[in-house]
Simulated assay, not measured.
Amino acid sequence: MTSTCLITGASSGIGRQLAQHYAANGWIVYAAARSKDKLDDLAKSAGIIALPLDLTDTAAIQDTATRLQQAGVVLDLLLLNAGTCEYVEATNLDLAAFERTFAINFQAVVAATKFFMPLLKASLSPQLAIVSSMAHFFPFTRAEAYGASKAAVSYFADSLRVDLADSGISVHLIEPGFVDTPLTQKNDFAMPFLVPVEQAAERIYRALQAGQSRIRFPRRLSVTLKLLSLLPYNLRSKMAQRMKQQ
């Protein structure tokens, strides 16, 4: 039996690569994103169905989920990957940047979970996978909006796993480090242990196939940030300040 997944943020970066990877492995892929042109190009690949959708529009998410449900679509995997990053200045916090960042990184995840999750219930092995980031492990400079949104996403996924434990739906939290995508290519700072997007998609695919609940990579960055988190709080803050000045 052919498996079916829905992937958000599929027009570029990790989402696009995952859509291609799942389709290449025989899945039917509903690729959701705001950019219709990029989705139409992606949908030229066999097994990929374009699903133009503004994830900041809750009514549009609900309408799309209803249409899929009425069409008899059953999802085996709902992979919520869409995200954005905006850096802010602490001395003049851009409230609009916080609103935009949380709208796509957090609120859209909650809304997509609410309206698309019913499509998982008829699957024999339903999976809900949510992409967060390692960014919230450490207080990086100018990352107040991005890091806070990803901390919220990770907590949401972990709490959701507890409450869905008896539902049959497994919840998987994906926390990558730096991945070479159009989003990270805008960064003007060094990104340690940068992972090619093709490798990131392969790691996520294999880990979800294996049923891993928490997926973190690259391991070297994960271990480094874990060790930093063990430092006394004041020392960790001073280290973050020194990193900012470099």
Score class of each variant (00 low, 15 high):
residue 13 G to M: 02
residue 225 L to C: 07
residue 229 S to C: 09
residue 221 L to R: 02
residue 111 A to D: 15
residue 223 V to C: 01
residue 140 F to P: 05
residue 115 F to I: 05
residue 87 Y to G: 04
residue 139 P to T: 09
residue 132 S to C: 10
residue 88 V to K: 06
residue 57 D to P: 12
residue 186 K to N: 14
residue 24 A to I: 03
residue 215 I to C: 03
residue 42 L to F: 02
residue 98 F to W: 13
residue 137 F to S: 11
residue 99 E to I: 11
residue 126 P to L: 13
residue 125 S to Y: 10
residue 189 F to K: 15
residue 68 L to H: 06
residue 108 A to Q: 11
residue 190 A to F: 13
residue 20 Q to D: 00
residue 15 G to Y: 01
residue 127 Q to L: 13
residue 1 M to P: 08
residue 154 S to M: 12
residue 119 L to Y: 10
residue 221 L to C: 00
residue 4 T to L: 05
residue 33 A to S: 09
residue 113 T to E: 04
residue 85 C to F: 01
residue 213 S to E: 08
residue 162 V to Q: 15
residue 59 A to C: 10
residue 220 R to G: 00
residue 194 L to F: 07
residue 110 V to D: 08
residue 164 L to S: 04
residue 205 Y to T: 03
residue 95 L to G: 06
residue 212 Q to H: 14
residue 196 P to V: 04
residue 213 S to V: 07
residue 124 L to N: 13
residue 56 T to Q: 15
residue 228 L to I: 02
residue 147 G to I: 08
residue 58 T to K: 15
residue 34 R to S: 14
residue 114 K to T: 15
residue 1 M to W: 04
residue 101 T to P: 10
residue 112 A to H: 04
residue 23 A to K: 00
residue 93 L to I: 15
residue 83 G to F: 07
residue 223 V to H: 02
residue 174 I to L: 13
residue 27 W to N: 07
residue 76 D to Y: 07
residue 51 L to P: 00
residue 110 V to E: 06
residue 147 G to T: 05
residue 163 D to G: 12
residue 176 P to Y: 09
residue 162 V to A: 14
residue 183 L to H: 00
residue 215 I to K: 02
residue 208 L to W: 12
residue 83 G to N: 06
residue 118 P to F: 02
residue 243 M to L: 10
residue 245 Q to V: 09
residue 148 A to D: 13
residue 237 S to M: 14
residue 30 Y to S: 10
residue 126 P to D: 06
residue 21 H to N: 05
residue 125 S to D: 13
residue 89 E to W: 07
residue 242 R to C: 05
residue 105 N to Y: 08
residue 104 I to A: 09
residue 180 D to G: 10
residue 87 Y to R: 03
residue 9 G to D: 03
residue 76 D to I: 03
residue 77 L to Q: 03
residue 59 A to P: 06
